[in-house]
Amino acid sequence: MKRRKFIKYSSAGTLLINLLPQQLFAMQQFTEEELIGKGTPGLYGDGFQVRKEVYDAFVKMKAAAQKENIDMEVVSGYRDFFRQKAIYERKYKKYTEEGLSPVKSIEKIIEYSTIPGTSRHHWGTDMDIIDARGKHEGDVLIPDKFHGNGPFCKFKEWMDKHSESFGFYLVYTDNGNRKGFKYEPWHYSYKPLSGPMLKEYRKIDIKEMLIKNELLGKEHLSDDFIDRYRRENVLDINPELL
């Protein structure tokens, strides 16, 4: 090979190697269908599903945690639009039948659950994780179980120290000034991929998308509500993920 061509190819290879993972993922194209949970992303996992890049990083993190007697278990990974819609509409019917107004019902739903088409779980980058070795009863996704003498406090302490080195960041932090979804010490996002996806997601007209998808109670989603939901629930997250 001629020296000039060798330099050209070597320089190109060095450039790709030196690119950060997030920069490489940013080069990918994400369709609106993917971003709202109606796409067909390649998914991997045993008992849960996420994108391959996320799965590979999780396997490495899980192996590291096992050395300290922590057995990571994914409670929830990828959820498509239709699964999220079923969750949302079941709660909407329950709360309205109990006497709450449609608007109050939606506000109660979004304390912890997302409106379909707006969930980070649609991306295959986010997971709800616990420690399978933590002895517990009832619902596992309770903040108190991750602190003090809770069954998952050792897991949380380990994640606070190590998760970011594997690319995983807590999404809904315990910050008193943060609005939107309540604190979720179990919900982690793989930043190298979810960062570029959020950037693309911000271009979507959420209200138009929800009206088009025939959501229960959509007539009560005013412009003011959607603006606030986008600002507080979609974007008021761990600033490291923005």
Rank of each mutant, 00 (worst) to 15 (best):
R4I: 13
K5A: 09
K5T: 08
F6L: 12
I7A: 10
I7W: 14
K8S: 06
S10E: 06
S11I: 06
S11N: 10
G13I: 07
L15C: 03
L19M: 15
P21K: 15
Q22L: 04
Q23M: 07
A26E: 12
A26V: 00
M27Y: 03
M27C: 08
F30L: 02
F30H: 12
E32I: 07
L35K: 02
G45D: 11
G45H: 11
D46T: 05
G47A: 08
Q49Y: 04
V54K: 03
Y55M: 01
K60G: 01
K60D: 11
K60V: 02
M61N: 10
Q66G: 08
Q66Y: 11
E68R: 08
E68D: 15
M72R: 02
Y78N: 08
F81D: 11
F82L: 03
Q84N: 14
K85V: 04
A86S: 14
A86F: 05
E89Q: 07
R90E: 14
K91Q: 11
K93P: 00
K94W: 08
K94S: 09
K94A: 13
G99W: 01
L100W: 04
S101G: 15
P102H: 04
P102I: 00
E111A: 09
S113A: 14
S113D: 15
T114L: 01
P116M: 07
G117F: 03
T118A: 13
R120S: 09
D126S: 14
M127S: 06
I129K: 05
I130N: 08
K135G: 02
K135T: 13
H136V: 05
H136I: 01
L141A: 09
I142N: 06
I142W: 01
P143K: 03
K145C: 02
F146K: 04
P151G: 08
F152R: 00
E157Q: 12
G167R: 11
F168A: 06
T173S: 07
N175H: 10
G176A: 06
G176K: 13
N177K: 14
Y183E: 05
E184M: 09
P185E: 07
Y188F: 15
Y190N: 04
K191H: 05
P192L: 13
S194V: 14
S194I: 12
S194Q: 13
G195A: 13
G195Y: 15
P196Q: 12
M197D: 12
K199Q: 13
K199C: 01
K199P: 00
E200S: 13
E200M: 04
E200V: 02
K203C: 02
K203D: 12
I204Y: 11
K207M: 09
M209Q: 10
K212Y: 03
N213R: 15
L215P: 00
L215M: 13
E219S: 15
H220M: 09
D224P: 00
D227L: 12
D227H: 10
R230G: 07
R231C: 09
V234D: 06
L235F: 12
L235H: 14
D236K: 09
I237A: 13
N238T: 05
P239V: 04
P239E: 12
E240I: 00
L241S: 13
